[in-house]
Design a protein around this nucleic acid. Sequence first.
DNA 1: AAAATTGAACAGACAAGTCTGTCTTTGTTT
DNA 2: AAACAAAGACAGACTTGTCTGTTCAATTTT
Lengths: 187, 187
Amino acid sequence: MKHSEVKNRIIETASFLFYKNGYNSTGINEIISEAGIAKATLYNHFKSKEEICLAYLKFKNSSFIQDVEDFTTSKPKGKAQVLAIFDFLELFFRDKDFNGCWCIKTVSEIPKDNEIIRAEIQLQKHSFIDLISKLITNNLENVKEAQVKSLARQIYLLYEGAVGESHLHQEDWPIKETKQLCSQIIS
Amino acid sequence: MKHSEVKNRIIETASFLFYKNGYNSTGINEIISEAGIAKATLYNHFKSKEEICLAYLKFKNSSFIQDVEDFTTSKPKGKAQVLAIFDFLELFFRDKDFNGCWCIKTVSEIPKDNEIIRAEIQLQKHSFIDLISKLITNNLENVKEAQVKSLARQIYLLYEGAVGESHLHQEDWPIKETKQLCSQIIS
DNA sequence: AAAATTGAACAGACAAGTCTGTCTTTGTTT
DNA sequence: AAACAAAGACAGACTTGTCTGTTCAATTTT
């Protein structure tokens, strides 16, 4: 196996396990045995478990941003493209591997003073808010420039609430209610 | 110290540590040394760490429900009493011990198949939704009976989103934005 | 006297990370 | 083409330390 392939395999395996079972509950031994690699190989690619955690967050986020962009742009222009993020979430929720937001999960597990992980997570969330901002300016003509930031944040908050609560309750009414609410505020 | 006082001391100490540092990261040894009791005493009151976790969740929730009720009823009747939950959250957020939602934190840490903990958390959230429903029917006369459930859920989702995101970003704009949004939908 | 608490030792599992030494693959040099 | 070298992957033992939960004799409280 190529060098970069091994690294990807580690990231994918660790991501699957971290997301499914939690960061603290997933041991290095579990990762290597699942990935079918040796421990020294893992530590040849990552200098610590925390470094794998960062790679996990980045991996999840880049897939997510890509998927959301693809999904929304496949919808007809206008309000529909904005509301599409909730339809995307509905699909995400129905997936058997759905386990809520990886950022919230990770923040809940790491010590409060871990600035490195926290900074990465805040960065990711801001990139998502930026995506929503772009969706707004591209699709909602009647929204003034000065309102975009606030509106993007509100939609973001609705989305995040829906992710967490649909996961907690294991039901999809949080998605439906927030989509309904979003529809109200963009009309 | 009385028997029940010891038990309360364990619950308070464990709650403080679980909430601050996380459930998995808090060991039994830390709890007993912080509470100043012997390990056998702890296991005389609780048969497992999971049982302490349940007591922790119940302890946090009953304080919370009580505090929210006291705070909202101290405000003038009408819209203000509903919006007061976001002012309450603002105070909660400014508290140095604020660490987000204990339910979300705990759900993020426990195995997916732990039905006992999960059931308790869902119960707590429903009791909070009930509280919001009562706030609506007591304060918003123009809301029809049939709309109460949906509106309560929406306000609940706004609140929960605000808790999680203010914690994640360590800023209070999520609280301000959701309060603004709430104000819009109840007018 | 009965009940509860104490400290300390204990068991057994598991954690992150290091290290030794071997095997395989790749690419370069002769 | 053959010999060689360097890189990286391999298994797995090992260190150091933490974890939950149990046991027990001694002491304190009621």
